[in-house]
Design a protein around this nucleic acid. Structure first.
Lengths: 114, 114
DNA sequence: CTCATGTATCGACATATGTCAATACGAGGC
DNA sequence: GCCTCGTATTGACATATGTCGATACATGAG
């Protein structure tokens, strides 16, 4: 294959795919933002690894070495991003992974690693 | 399948997968943090969509409606996270997607959507 | 050499985020 | 009813982040 020399007086901008929709990018960014913290990454993967994708939170502050209000703050972030759903069972809160939430992430991943 | 009733005086904590390694979570969080902004999501996908996964940046500030220093700031973040690499060609900077950088993201994605 | 172009850096500003102590609230046992 | 347990919320604090104007720097043309 012949590789053309770069024309020194112009950038290689012949190929310019359109930028993706700002709204869709904002949605994706919300999901990424929800996982832009090591504690929340560990929380999501912990829940995902259970047999049925559901876990309660009561033991997690100690396991993670964080305070209970911080724990609550992080879980709220994951719920708000749609990554998990919350169910109150008696006095305990149970969280379940929402598999669909990362569909957009998979789309981006496929683009990047095609 | 018989579904056992939840014991009202205890949480469903019989199954407790180990939390993933804090170091690995921190690495993943860095990648997610790099994409926790709509502008950077658009930038990465734009570059990924080119024929050879390479694009220059000169036209992007206008296309994105942001200033040139902001553009430079965002590209630096993507480079620092290892998502793209930068090559100077004359006066132009060209960016190339690093497909391997999102391997950890794919691992998490597979966990969440199994 | 000067000048133009493209990009990086600095500094300032406003906003966002992670943390925890204190406290409020709801469920459940007695 | 009171008390305990588990969780949510508030407020304060420190740090992180996105923005742009001004400026510095490198490349390239003349």
């Amino acid at each position: 294959m012949i590789e053309l020399d770069v024309v020194p007086t112009a950038c290689c901008a012949d190929e310019r795919p359109d930028l993706i929709d700002a709204g869709r990018a904002a949605d994706l960014a919300e999901v990424f933002k929800a996982l832009a913290d090591p504690t929340r990454v560990r929380l999501l993967e912990h829940i995902a690894r259970t047999e049925d994708g559901t876990a309660c939170a009561c033991h997690l502050p100690d396991a993670l070495g964080i305070s209970q209000p911080t724990m609550s703050h992080h879980m709220q972030k994951l719920v708000k991003a749609g990554l998990v759903t919350r169910e109150q069972r008696g006095r305990w809160a149970h969280y379940t992974v929402s598999p669909d939430a990362m569909a957009g992430v998979r789309g981006l991943l496929d683009s990047v690693t095609r």
